[in-house]
Amino acid sequence: MKPIIEIQALTKQYADGYLALDDVSVQINAGEIIALLGPNGAGKTTLISIICGLTTITSGSVGIAGFDVVRDYRKARSIIGLVPQELTLEPFETVLGTVNLSRGLFGKKQDKAHIESTLRQLSLWDRRNTQIRELSGGTKRRVLIAKALSHDPKILFLDEPTAGVDVDMRRDTWTVIKDLKRRGVTIVLTTHYIEEAEEIADRVAVINSGKIILIEEKNELMKRLGTKQLRIELERPISEIPESLRGFDVQFENGGARLVYRYDANRKQNDVHSVLEILTAEHIAIKDVQTYQSSLEDIFVSLVAEGRSS
């Protein structure tokens, strides 16, 4: 299947010389939810802004359903919806007024039924005639989502949709996103909450200092995360792993002073017990035992740290 978004060797240097994106290439498939995970200043907003036409390209290209975002901007943009990071709305406009404006801007005829269902889905229908300045931050965010959905986009960009939002509101947003996916909308969201990526993404791309440093299926990632380690500190270092432990995934560390047994935490049955028993039988004295589970967070932190030092 041809990707719906094709980013090729994209580089962005701002007028002040700052290199915000450095040779980024990503392909995004139709219908998937991809989370762009990265610390502040990584270049997430810059990437989205370029795709949506808010920021100019220094070099490279972006294609949307085969249409170049610069040359064929009308066709490319007409299937995109954008929920910006900041709560930017006209304070004196009503919810309905601003959502209608959005639909028109994207070249669609007014459609009362569609607007009503969009507003209902986001629990905004009762507030349709309210002025925006009277709404809370969370509700404003929903208005922005409604605006982005007003013209039935095939691709939705959400720039930190749940930043500074309470837990309930975050869950609601996730429900909306999952619902859109079910309807076939491709979703690109940026976040710095790992939990969010874990919860809803099909794929995760980690971005740091303008570079994509990892892009992987979330399930693959979770499998890696699912690996637990049993770290056994020994009283005296040993020179060789005992014959009886060969059947287990056990490795030396720290010059033989530590044994590390890796096992799948997702499996109900594991052999922690057997490993410990064998060690006792072999008269290998144990000083300390700990288990350790790496999280997406660890991977993220180590990737970002690697990125910094290189």
Partner: peptide, 10 residues
């Protein structure tokens, strides 16, 4: 900042 919308529109 609402200018983002006409700028991202076709």
């Amino acid at each position: 900042g609402t200018i983002y919308e006409p700028l991202s529109a076709p």
